[in-house]
Design a binder for these strands. Structure first.
Lengths: 366, 366
DNA sequence: ACGAGATATGAATCTACTA
DNA sequence: GTAGTAGATTCATATCTCG
């Protein structure tokens, strides 16, 4: 399915593009994607994957030189695909990259050097990692993800309330405990072997997409593999674009995603924040007669009092101004949310004025 | 105390050197140190003030030593001190560096570029991190440590069995859950303010030194601060060399370390024992009358409660099983260390049941 | 003395909109 | 661009205060 968005060139939405991810990305229109999720290769032996600049062959390479040249080649590759990825992002777009200690430090430094602004590094703590059989190191029980905005000023998407709800009402932390991909979720080929060596669990993508995209957003994955990103995106009502070089992976991914059903509207609804709700000027409460000019408001802690004026400002002892300004001044605080700070009296009881705002908002949504 | 080791130039063991760490390191003899632990400035780049929702101001890390003009300046600094550090390491030496997403990717890339060989990246998962007050990102709940050998062929020290014993007989993972440094452990100045903005917990250094040094090893810390590395090294019978620019930090560290007592031979042996600590079934606490059947246990976070049954299992709301199973079920976690999760009440105070196990173990070793 | 409740604080790249 | 202002936002733990 290819969809045309207002005025912009066509985006190959919900398809898997074949070929090299850098070329494929450069063929897409710039500033057209909301989120990029990338699980790049990190095996330094796969030089063919790395677009290594054609170094002259030196026979007697010692280990250190060889190591340096492979890091250097990996850096070239990383910077090339990150540059192409950044071009595709909308100004308020963001990127997630996952990796291990073999490559993540190089990826992180490259992100910073290219102007991406790191928002968090997130640790995927595997609940069932492979043990270190030889007992020579610690069990490698986690992978690292970097979440970064396109630049410092990007107004990135962050569904704080939805993630908080996912975490039983407590703010989501930067360490996520999730099992690795096994059992029925792990895709197999005809001979029963795993179809892809590093298939990521859907739970990981679920949390990423819930937290940093909205329904209808476009999510691009330049190292699509067997399509976990696409499967979760489709389920969650996001559009995806996948890029994958290997035909076998593309085939597995196509079949997999075809089986996925988009959740219905109700299931897709997530907890929203107060910030997303329409603004209500305090003056409207006066205009509508919900509060009378001259009426007294009382502070939450009952220590202060102020009078409502006809223009929607307050006047207290030696202070006048907005509900927020007067609250802050009386408390000697740098700021104050007047809506939750002030109460009015109703039948002798103190009621937060925020209740009146909620009434107005309820009427607006009808 | 300055000690001369066989034939090598004198090392200023168990002292704190003043001045810039690069100069100080270059003045020391090469290949003389077993382990380096470094907690360099993080280059936080903080801007305005931050207030908690209750309007109190967050005491930010705004010290002069954490200000760099650019990533490039920070990289120059990092590469310079890493180069000096690497020169000091014995061929089989290793280094630990701790950082956050602000700097750790640059540190990791520099380590790799200079020929260090990364062994693990270790995540310190803070059990009590500072929340994200504005709800704009994930709680920054961890820091990252990189453990690397001097080079690929280094026969680094790794006390596999000791760490396994510390972890209740299970292979130690790359993610460590430890609380931040607070309470009595947190050093204060005369006016009662924290003596250092970023003091690390001793538990962190304890695990590092147990795992990657032996008794009598030399541990160098080029960013000594208030001397956590020195205090733990002394306690564990390792020699330390500290380097610190700020005189006030040096003074605090001197006093602190003077108060530390080296563990006696026996205690040292236990801590680094080759075999795991003897296993103590929870039921033994009941059999011995240390806990009564019917007695209530309380979770560490005080959110859950369960009753002890005569057979050494617990029963909570709709769950029964071992202390570990019930803890995991109540927390919705894949696993749970019941020994550290559950508390009993003693004289009204909540005491971890692990204390009872320690009592039994102490008796067993007599 | 003891318990309940209040207060304090931690390596933090922590807003969004209008004029 | 900048300045001003509305208004949204916290978890675990240690210590202190007061009855």
């Amino acid at each position: 399915m290819t969809t045309k968005k207002k005025g912009a060139p066509a985006l190959p939405l919900n398809t898997i593009l074949a070929g090299d991810c850098i070329e494929a990305m450069n063929a897409l229109p710039e500033a057209s994607v909301d989120l990029i999720f990338a699980d790049p290769p990190y095996n330094l032996q796969l030089r063919g994957d790395l677009h290594r600049p054609d170094n002259s062959r030196v026979d007697a390479v010692d280990d250190e030189w060889d190591r340096f040249s492979s890091f250097s080649a990996y850096d070239d590759f990383t910077r090339a695909w990150l540059k192409a990825a950044r071009r595709l992002l909308k100004p308020n777009g963001a990127i997630w990259v996952i990796g291990s200690y073999h490559n993540i430090f190089r990826v992180g430094a490259a992100l910073q050097d290219q102007g991406f602004w790191i928002l968090n590094d997130v640790v995927w703590r595997k609940s069932n990692p492979m043990p270190n059989f030889r007992g020579k190191r610690l069990t490698n029980a986690h992978e690292t993800m970097i979440w970064a905005g396109k630049d410092e000023s990007s107004k990135y998407t962050f569904n704080y309330e939805a993630l908080k709800a996912l975490n039983e009402g407590i703010q989501m932390r930067s360490d996520w405990v999730l099992p690795i991909c096994t059992g029925h979720e792990r895709l197999k080929d005809e001979s029963g072997d795993k179809a892809h060596p590093t298939q990521k669990p859907e739970s990981l993508l679920h949390r990423i997409l819930i937290g940093s995209t909205n329904v209808g957003d476009v999510v691009l994955d330049p190292f699509f593999g067997t399509g976990t990103t696409g499967a979760v995106a489709k389920m969650l009502g996001r559009d995806f674009i996948g890029i994958e070089r290997e035909e076998t992976y593309r085939e597995v991914a196509e079949k997999r995603i075809a089986m996925v059903r988009r959740l219905d509207k109700e299931a897709l609804q997530t907890t929203t924040s107060k910030r997303a709700e329409p603004r209500v000027p305090f003056g409207q409460l006066v205009e509508r007669g919900m509060l009378r000019p001259g009426e007294s408001l009382y502070s939450m802690n009952n220590r202060h009092k102020a009078k409502v004026r006809a223009d929607g400002t307050l006047i207290g002892d030696d202070v006048k101004g907005s509900i927020h300004q007067v609250g802050a001044a009386l408390e000697g605080a740098p700021s104050c949310n007047g809506w939750t700070y002030w109460c009015f009296k109703k039948d002798g009881k103190r009621v937060p004025i925020d209740l009146l705002r909620q009434q107005i908002r309820a009427e607006m949504s009808n």
